[in-house]
């Protein structure tokens, strides 16, 4: 069983993000990059499967700021191999579609049974990465996964659906999963272990050159959400408030 976990670096949201001079991206020069928390859940799920069965775990990530830290931490936690994909501008914003194609092009040369990645990321709130990967590789895909169970050559996954429902389905391996949550909170890798990993293990680098350029959406303007008017507080008796609400809804043409 070979599990590949695809991880991403993101601007740390505790920093005050600023828009760059062009107004087309965040200013990447002065922000700290951290790993995507859902990818951490995907890694944890992979490592839990490894703990249960004799799986090997490969983590793969695009060359992005501070990605080495994330990869070494994954090795310290128990991943067997870490791969960094180069061939793009490491300081630029890589859109999800291009990211998926780069990872898929790496996976094309790999024997794998399962690909896990975070269900979403701050720059991929729609959670497209797992889906695009699945379709590019032409293998089954499931999103918002909250539980994984291996049953021989197939996989039983629990997915969080709307309205508090959980759906369980079976997939043929190999498959791609967008992980919402692992069975347990991501484990801790002590700094000593991470430093040990840095000394004893190597990050493999693989250059990926995409033959066909990925069609991309051009960002015309990136801006912080504009402040809307504040809320209006309705006061008075329940009846007055109800009348007021009806008036508002009518005046907006909603009823």
């Amino acid at each position: 069983m070979h599990i590949v976990v695809a991880m991403r670096q993101l601007a740390d949201l505790v920093e005050e993000l600023e828009v760059n001079g062009d107004g087309t991206d965040i200013d990447r020069d002065f922000v700290k990059f951290v790993s995507n928390e859902w990818d951490e859940a995907a890694l944890e799920e992979a490592l839990t499967i490894k703990d249960e069965s004799a799986a090997s775990v490969t983590v793969v990530a695009l060359d992005e700021p501070d990605v080495d830290q994330t990869l070494y931490a994954a090795l310290a936690k128990g991943a067997d191999r870490a791969v960094k994909l180069t061939g793009h501008d490491p300081s630029a914003w890589v859109r999800t579609r291009e990211r998926a194609q780069r990872i898929a092009s790496f996976l094309a040369h790999e024997e794998f049974d399962l690909v896990l990645t975070g269900v979403q990321a701050a720059d991929d709130l729609d959670g497209q990465l797992a889906g695009i990967l699945g379709s590019t590789l032409d293998i089954p895909h499931a999103a918002v996964v909250v539980g994984v169970e291996l049953t021989g050559s197939s996989l039983r996954v629990a997915q969080e659906l709307g309205g508090g429902l959980v759906g369980v389905s079976e997939l043929e391996l190999p498959a791609v999963l967008g992980v919402q949550a692992a069975r347990q909170a991501p484990r801790y890798a002590s700094i000593t272990r991470i430093r040990q990993a840095m000394q004893t293990q190597k990050i493999e680098e693989q250059e990926v050159s995409l033959e066909v350029t990925t069609p991309q959406v051009t960002v015309r303007r990136l801006y912080p959400p504009e402040k809307q008017g504040g809320a209006t507080m309705l006061t008075g008796s329940a009846k007055d408030v109800a009348t007021e609400i009806v008036n508002i809804l009518r005046s907006k043409g909603l009823v």
């Binding site: 740390d12 505790v14 920093e15 700290k32 909170a185 801790y188 000593t192």
Partner: peptide, 29 residues
């Protein structure tokens, strides 16, 4: 700590300290 056997709140404090340099998880700036 080496085994990662700790309270989740402690774990996140340590992670905050490792990444931000403070236990509050706020930007060092």
């Amino acid at each position: 700590v080496d085994q990662g056997a700790m309270d989740p709140t402690l774990q996140s404090a340590l992670q905050n300290i490792a990444t931000q340099g403070n236990s509050f998880g706020k930007s060092s700036r």
